[in-house]
Design a protein around this nucleic acid. Structure first.
Lengths: 231, 231
DNA sequence: GGAAGACGTTAAGAAAGCGTTAGGAAAACT
DNA sequence: AGTTTTCCTAACGCTTTCTTAACGTCTTCC
């Protein structure tokens, strides 16, 4: 399971503001890089190609608008300006040299994150690939609830699908019978280990190349089952 | 590309604010349309396809966020929210349902124009989103609310259409019964899975070549339905 | 090497879910 | 107000899915 989130670049010199932003960005689940000067910011933008840049206008070494201009010579990375100055002329200037948004301090983390989402949404190229779990001949698109074996779509019943995805969630690890019964049948009293045998057999028939000698859907005798991920 | 500039749609009920905006937009050299209510705004958006929408949240006839949501079902026209409410929660809500910017009154004409420029910049650098969904023999013009099957126009009732476009919006993915009921019937208490069966049958009769063996409008037993996009 | 426990396999009946039809109620339109 | 369209609802039969039982196979341990 791949697909790490967007990468943000934070260009900000004041330590206090940096701390605030760190908390905000981490709260939003973003990865981020930090630069304390304009020079450094430009260099990091070039090197790491972040998905979005948060730029403080009050940098010590260069004017924020200059930085914007230089950046726009080669990149269209969305930029959100953070500034203590709320004068209309400042905003207009920044937006017109290519900034995508302008936030005046102080601002809330919620609004910041919402505006980051907007900017990233714009940058979206359109078709977003769903996270896909793949293993051997299998491709499982959890968002689509779709299982492909060598490109062919395989239909799984609700219980089969829940059982399979439960194993996927714990891929590589042994899942005990008790746990599987609980997660798939949802704590219903009547759930018996026999069910697991029946449905594991069905899964193997639908998914394994040689169901009688399963390669991935392995039994751990006396304990439970596990989805083998290595070879 | 014609000689005239971008067309803006202004959805605003207060006469005073309208006068202010007229002056601002004319100063910026824009053509614009005006609507005083949400209904009117949606209709004009569909008919005239403006390049950008300025939307006041405090409309008399419908909630501004509802309007956003309805609009985003078929169009990605940039929307700038104008609001007297500056609460962070309001901003976050509006931005997350698809607004592109949020301006709190009072604001200056200069900043408004600058933010309009930013929004329009996004629209033309980015991909022009095709408001037509096509699949197999089907062509669905989401803006015109028109469904063609092999070029023939097929009439769908409101519920049929909402059900169909909901599936289109999640094309390829399984949409659970619960979710469909919520999105189509709008969280009304009485909505039952039976409704889905009835309307899916009607959709299949109107759209599928062989309604008894549907190719695209697929059932996922025990889960929901999905619009199959591949083969 | 045999017995016991654990697991795999198959099939069939039961249950749940789904498709279909139609008629009356409600809403929209004229 | 009358007409037409749309929506809701119930009933019935069909299909899919789940459950359950019986039996075969494998492993382990004495």
């Amino acid at each position: 399971m791949t697909a790490s989130g967007p990468l943000l670049l934070l260009v900000e010199d004041e330590p206090q503001m940096r701390r605030f932003l760190r908390v905000a960005l981490e709260g939003g689940g973003y990865r981020y890089l930090e630069a304390a000067t304009g020079q450094e910011g430009l260099a990091m933008a070039a090197q790491h190609r972040p998905d979005l840049i948060l730029l403080d206008l009050g940098l010590p070494d260069m004017d924020g608008l200059d930085l914007m201009t230089r950046l726009r010579e080669w990149a269209r990375t969305p930029v959100i300006i953070l500034s203590a100055r709320g004068q209309e002329a400042d905003k207009i200037g920044a937006l017109d040299v290519g900034a995508d948004d302008y936030l005046t301090k102080p601002f809330g983390t919620g609004e910041l994150l919402a505006r980051i989402r907007v900017a990233l949404r714009h940058a979206d190229t359109g078709d977003v690939q769903d996270p896909v779990f793949s293993l051997g001949r299998w491709r499982v698109d959890l968002a689509r609830r779709q299982v492909l074996v060598e490109g062919r779509e395989i239909h799984l019943t609700p219980i089969e699908y829940r059982l399979f995805t439960t194993l996927i969630r714990h891929a590589g690890k042994v899942v005990t019978q008790r746990q599987l019964l609980k997660e798939v049948w949802g704590g219903v009293a009547g759930a018996q280990p026999l069910y697991l045998r029946v449905y594991m057999a069905q899964l193997r028939h639908k998914l394994e190349e040689d169901p009688s000698r399963p390669r991935y859907l392995r039994t751990e005798p006396g304990v439970g089952y596990r989805l083998r991920t290595e070879d």
